[in-house]
Simulated scan of single mutants.
Amino acid sequence: MENKPSSEAVPENANEHCPGVESQNAGKSSSCAGCPNQSLCASGGMKNGINQTAVETEQIKEAMKSIKRKFLVLSGKGGVGKSTVSSQLALTMALCEKDSVPQVGVLDVDLCGPSIPTMFGLEGYQLHQSNLGWTPAYYEDNLAVVSIGFMLPNKDDAVIWRGPKKNGLIKQFLRDVYWGDYLDYLIIDTPPGTSDEHITIVQYLKNVDIDGAIIVTTPQDVSCNDVRREINFCKKVGIPIIGIIENMSGFVCPNCKNKAMIFKPTSGGGQQLAIDYEIPFLGSIPLDPMVMQSCETGKSIVKDHPESPASQAMKEIVQKIITHKKNNQ
């Protein structure tokens, strides 16, 4: 008879007491009961006497050594515009700088909700394999995109996968994509929450010199409360936090340009959250109809609507991110 952990064995606050993937108690603590990653954590990634995790981590490290800066975009809950922010950050970063053309990549690991292809106008593209690895879709010559959305026969197909299969694809994305000879920036768009995919990403990126996490919230308390859990997750697993972005921060009328707070920040919103946790506040992006239009048509709001309030906010946020120094953490 197969032994399965009973529901009584799983503490209500199990997530809060996760020992972390780096701990000697990983997979062995009582709070690990019922976790789908328990066996992997407990074994330390051992398979047939070989530390498979260490081998795969080294392969990923080798594959990503040509990427100068790597950013995770996280959110505590869905619906805060995390993919919108990820896509517009990448599009803004890809704009030509004074003396160079930045090379930018976007890796979409939101496997069950891959909206990145739509936001870049790349629906219908299929990933191709070569002897160098998977070839990304190219929005521009200097902006490459990878998503599970490029692997689905039909864009409306549901991804009904258990944790191990999702984790395996994330590992392949990190290890087997050929981004070219060099990338200045890689934006990794993650699913909401602090679950399987996040643990896998942390496990494989811990030794690749990742810059840190950009956390997205909206002003209302229900979002900020979930972001607190995201912040604590980052601290527990050792991901440096670059800062917080408050999205949908007031509605900007396209005619009179007046701003109205649709989602009232009852407890101070993202800015107060940054103060509470002593982490940088990167800026506020207003609820601007031009942002939605840009995302649905695969356009850059900074390029097409440079004078819009959201465009101005995005440029300021990107400037803070690219001038961020790792030793500030």
Rank of each mutant, 00 (worst) to 15 (best):
R229Y: 00
L282Y: 02
K236L: 08
T200M: 09
S294N: 03
L169Q: 03
L111N: 07
P240I: 04
K166C: 03
E316I: 08
Y178A: 01
V145F: 06
V227F: 05
I199Q: 00
P219H: 06
R69L: 06
N225T: 10
Q38P: 01
M1P: 14
A9N: 13
K61G: 14
M248T: 09
L183D: 00
T53A: 07
I50L: 07
G298C: 13
I60A: 14
G20F: 04
R229V: 03
L95Q: 06
N255A: 13
E62D: 15
E22M: 10
I116Q: 12
D99Q: 09
Y182Q: 08
F281I: 15
C224M: 14
D176N: 13
E58Q: 12
I231T: 15
H17A: 04
I301D: 04
D181V: 06
N167Y: 05
M151K: 04
I60S: 06
P136W: 02
I201H: 02
S39V: 15
D209T: 10
D108Q: 07
S308H: 09
K65M: 13
R69P: 08
L152N: 02
N15K: 12
G133N: 09
G133Q: 04
S294Y: 03
M151G: 05
T135W: 06
D276L: 06
S284R: 10
Q220A: 14
D99C: 14
P153A: 11
L132C: 08
Q293V: 08
S39R: 05
Y139Q: 02
A26F: 09
E2Q: 12
P136E: 00
K4F: 09
K259P: 13
T200W: 01
N255V: 14
I50N: 03
T118D: 04
I215L: 15
K326Y: 02
K257P: 10
Y277F: 13
V227M: 02
N37E: 07
T200K: 02
H305V: 11
D184I: 01
L40D: 04
Q88H: 12
L205H: 00
L169R: 05
H128F: 12
P102I: 08
L282R: 05
D157F: 07
R175Q: 07
H198Y: 00
M292E: 02
R162V: 07
V145T: 11
V177K: 09
Q319M: 12
S284T: 09
E230M: 15
L186R: 11
E316C: 07
I285A: 01
M64G: 03
Y185N: 01
K165I: 08
C35E: 11
T194F: 04
S29T: 10
V55R: 13
A33T: 03
N48T: 11
M93V: 02
E2H: 12
N142F: 14
A274H: 05
S23L: 00
T57L: 03
E22Y: 12
K303L: 15
G34D: 12
S86Y: 14
V177D: 02
C18A: 15
I148G: 12
Q52Y: 00
F71W: 08
A33F: 09
K98A: 13
L273K: 05
T200I: 07
